[in-house]
Design a protein around this nucleic acid. Structure first.
Length: 288
DNA sequence: TGATATGTTATCTT
DNA sequence: CAAGATAACATATC
């Protein structure tokens, strides 16, 4: 679930919390969750926090980086030394009980401790995510393989037109292809296509120029909205903020997980299909 | 009990 | 060979 808006939220929260700190120790509770040598980063200072696609980049002194991918169920939680071990999480809808989370817990796969005894917890139920030690030179190569960042200048109508013309796949699958557009995942691809009034199963080549323009605007709009609401903590509650709080975007879903409900635009019933094995939601009436 | 969910990569199929 | 489709990964929840 964590896609561009979720990682961007984490990036913005972490940068003012950890920049300038020195890594004191790293505890790895699940070997697969940490790749590289721990000793290479001990004593390094955090000089920046960045994002590329759905990856968080913690830049360290000495041209070394810690790369974090949350995959489906990863979380990054920050705790000050003065904080008690319980982090409060707000309710997803106000009626539900307040949830509390003690750290570390049984899903804490990697724990980074800084010299001031504050800690960053990498929690991951499904163990797909990872923290990786990467040299800046390697990162450059890696990063170059990803597609355009949709919130940067290079994401033009021409660019979108070009990538769509090259593939016959369903438009939604093209949008989610990280080598074409970096950071869009299932939730925001569904949302953007709804906003643009385009059916997810249509082939990329079918789109008229007018539709491509509309789609580009919808993608940018929906991602900014996702960031505004600090990401979405959907049903399975994988993603949460670094404070332990839920995101808010799930309360503003236009189509995602709205199967059987009325379309917010025209009142028709939202349908669900599968594309590339992933849940795909759309309005059969106003998405053409 | 079995289906479902999810991002990415490996592997199979066309 | 390449594009496309699908399985695999791990685990909780419905």
């Amino acid at each position: 679930m964590p896609e561009l808006p979720e990682i961007e939220t984490i990036k913005r929260q972490l940068e003012y919390k950890i920049i300038g700190k020195t890594i004191c120790s790293i505890a790895v509770n699940n070997p697969k969750s940490f790749r590289g040598e721990i000793k290479e980063v001990i004593g390094s200072k955090i000089i920046n926090v960045d994002r590329r696609a759905k990856m968080l980049i913690i830049c360290l002194s000495g041209n070394i980086n810690l790369l974090v991918h949350l995959k489906m169920s990863g979380q990054l939680l920050f705790k000050l030394k003065t904080q008690k071990s319980k982090l409060k999480t707000t309710t997803q809808n106000s009626k539900r009980k307040i949830k509390k989370q003690s750290l570390p817990d049984k899903y804490s796969r990697v724990i980074i401790t800084f010299e001031d005894r504050s800690q960053l917890f990498f929690n991951d139920v499904r163990k797909f995510g990872w923290v990786k030690v990467v040299l800046s030179s390697e990162l450059k190569v890696l990063s170059s393989k990803y597609g355009q960042e949709p919130l940067e200048k290079g994401f033009t109508v021409d660019y979108l037109e070009k990538i769509l013309s090259k593939s016959n796949k369903a438009i939604k699958l093209v949008l989610m292809d990280q080598n074409k557009i970096a950071g869009l995942g299932n939730i925001y691809a569904n949302e953007a296509l709804f906003l643009a009034g385009i059916r997810p199963a249509r082939g990329g080549r079918e789109l008229r120029n007018e539709e491509i323009k509309k789609l580009r605007e919808a993608i940018i709009k929906i991602l900014n909205k996702g960031i505004k609401y600090k990401g979405s903590s959907a049903k399975d509650k994988g993603y949460i903020q670094t404070t332990g709080e839920f995101g808010e975007y799930q309360n503003h879903f236009l189509v995602y997980q709205r199967e059987g409900k009325k379309c917010k635009r025209c009142g028709s019933i939202i349908k669900k299909i599968k594309l590339g094995g992933r849940g795909t939601f759309f309005c059969p009436s106003c998405q053409k």
